[in-house]
């Protein structure tokens, strides 16, 4: 198989509040022999909040990020659902609207860049499924997670709006019955847990302005996974991870019961199955104790 190579848009949390996500991404890429060229020029995507303030500026900044991936001639891979949504949404809007694209490019020209629309933008989860293949992952597993029930938590911005998301990857995902993460868990040897909240919201985006709403959502998700005998949760989104992993106290208070489960990043789960060490996967940075190692 030809060596896979992508332009990596790390997003901001991978460099700050979820260092373990960055570490495990690189560890898994090494194991899978995937080359990731980090887009060190990229700015924050605005996380769906800058868009609320200044839509055009947000488009220009996201188009600039994609332009750097295009310069490498590579597909842009994201490792955060919200980065994925904002970047793919920018691409969708510019590709569908030549007039808007021209206005954005007029600005980018001021810094010698151009958005062409030549690079696909896809989340690492789907790059692995579409390009690498779960069958190959399965073959490479050296330490299957067969003793664990693992609850997938998909994260809204990878599955909705489905019309946009399904432009970004080949394997179609049904937002009401998503399967990609379940399939990945099975490929890693784990038992996937079905529960009501797996495709629901974690509440992260309103943590500051509506803390009760956010805490109820996160608490319900952890409770749903727990009640279906999950030993741990896994998510492809670092924002969901932060909400589920670091806020268990407020989540527990909001749902009126103690809720706490180890939460792995998707990359940490793959890494464990492929035999990466705890240190390589940054497991010491997870707040809720990883009690099975």
């Amino acid at each position: 198989m030809k060596k896979l190579k992508y332009a990596l848009f790390t997003g901001c949390t991978a460099k700050q509040s979820t260092p373990e996500q960055m570490m495990s991404t690189m560890a898994v890429a090494r194991k899978l022999n995937i080359e990731l060229i980090e887009l060190t020029e990229a700015s924050c995507c605005g996380a769906s909040h800058l868009q609320d303030y200044d839509d055009f500026l947000s488009l220009v900044l996201n188009a600039r990020n994609i332009a750097y991936a295009e310069k490498h001639g590579l597909t842009m891979v994201t490792i955060c659902n919200t980065c994925q949504l904002n970047t793919a949404m920018t691409k969708h809007r510019l590709d569908k609207n030549p007039e808007l694209k021209a206005r954005v490019n007029e600005k980018l020209a001021e810094v010698g860049l151009e958005y062409k629309g030549t690079s696909l933008v896809t989340h690492f989860l789907y790059a692995i499924i579409d390009d690498f293949g779960l069958d190959k992952i399965k073959e490479m597993v050296v330490k299957p997670l067969s003793q664990f029930n693992i609850a997938p938590f998909y994260g809204c911005h990878n599955i909705r709006p489905s019309e946009l998301q399904n432009e970004s990857h080949k394997t179609p995902e049904n937002p009401y019955n998503p399967t990609s993460l379940d399939d990945l868990i099975i490929a890693c040897g784990g038992k996937n847990v079905d529960y009501e909240q797996k495709n629901k919201c974690c509440g992260f985006h309103v943590e500051l302005q509506a803390p009760h709403t956010a805490a109820v959502l996160a608490g319900s998700a952890i409770a749903g996974a727990t009640d279906n005998n999950a030993d741990m949760m896994v998510t492809p989104c670092p924002l969901c991870h932060l909400k589920l992993d670091t806020q268990t106290k407020s989540s527990s208070e909001a749902v009126g019961r103690e809720v706490s489960l180890p939460v792995l990043h998707m990359q940490q789960m793959i890494g464990l199955a492929l035999g990466c060490s705890a240190a390589e996967l940054g497991l010491k940075h997870n707040v809720t104790e990883i009690n099975f190692l």
Partner: peptide, 9 residues
């Protein structure tokens, strides 16, 4: 609108 969680449901 500021309490919208941006879940896109």
């Amino acid at each position: 609108v500021w309490d919208c969680v941006k879940c896109i449901e």
